[in-house]
């Protein structure tokens, strides 16, 4: 079975890098990244990753907008929000947008992959 393909969309390059390294090292997944919603959407459409890690607060096109665009495009790839917005109200709202899960920032690089697997019910 080929390794899972993960798309990380975050405007912070440092976070992209840490997350990518973390998932590569702990899960041996194939990780690609984009630093804007638009770039991420295009990448998702072209590459069809198995899951998308999406930052919420981004300039121009934020996480929910990106998600909406993806949904409008008929993309059915599960999306997990990776966000610093951790208030219960935010959580609830995000869940209603149709995301599979929410991972708060900062995340533990050693358990990030495990959290994603649990959310997506990957074995």
């Amino acid at each position: 079975m080929p390794p899972k393909q993960i798309l990380i969309i975050d405007d912070e390059n440092d976070i992209q890098e840490v997350a990518r390294l973390s998932l590569q090292l702990t899960e041996q997944w194939d990780v690609m990244s984009a630093n804007s919603g638009a770039a991420g959407t295009l990448l998702a459409l072209s590459e069809g990753p198995d899951a998308i890690l999406l930052d919420v607060m981004m300039p121009d096109m934020d996480g929910p907008s990106t998600l909406r665009v993806l949904q409008q495009q008929g993309v059915r790839i599960p999306v997990i929000f990776l966000t610093a917005k951790v208030q219960p109200a935010d959580r609830q709202k995000f869940m209603q947008l149709g995301v599979r899960g929410i991972i708060p920032k900062p995340f533990d690089p050693l358990t990030l992959g495990q959290q994603i697997r649990e959310m997506l019910a990957w074995g």
Binding site: I15, L21, S22, L25, A84, K105, P106, P109
Partner: peptide, 24 residues
């Protein structure tokens, strides 16, 4: 502030975690 602090902390925490894990 809490959000803005959280962003750099995410990188720090991730970097430290990876370093401490010995994976690198």
């Amino acid at each position: 502030v809490s959000h803005e602090l959280r962003t750099p902390l995410t990188s720090i925490r991730g970097a430290l975690g990876l370093l401490g894990s010995g994976l690198l």
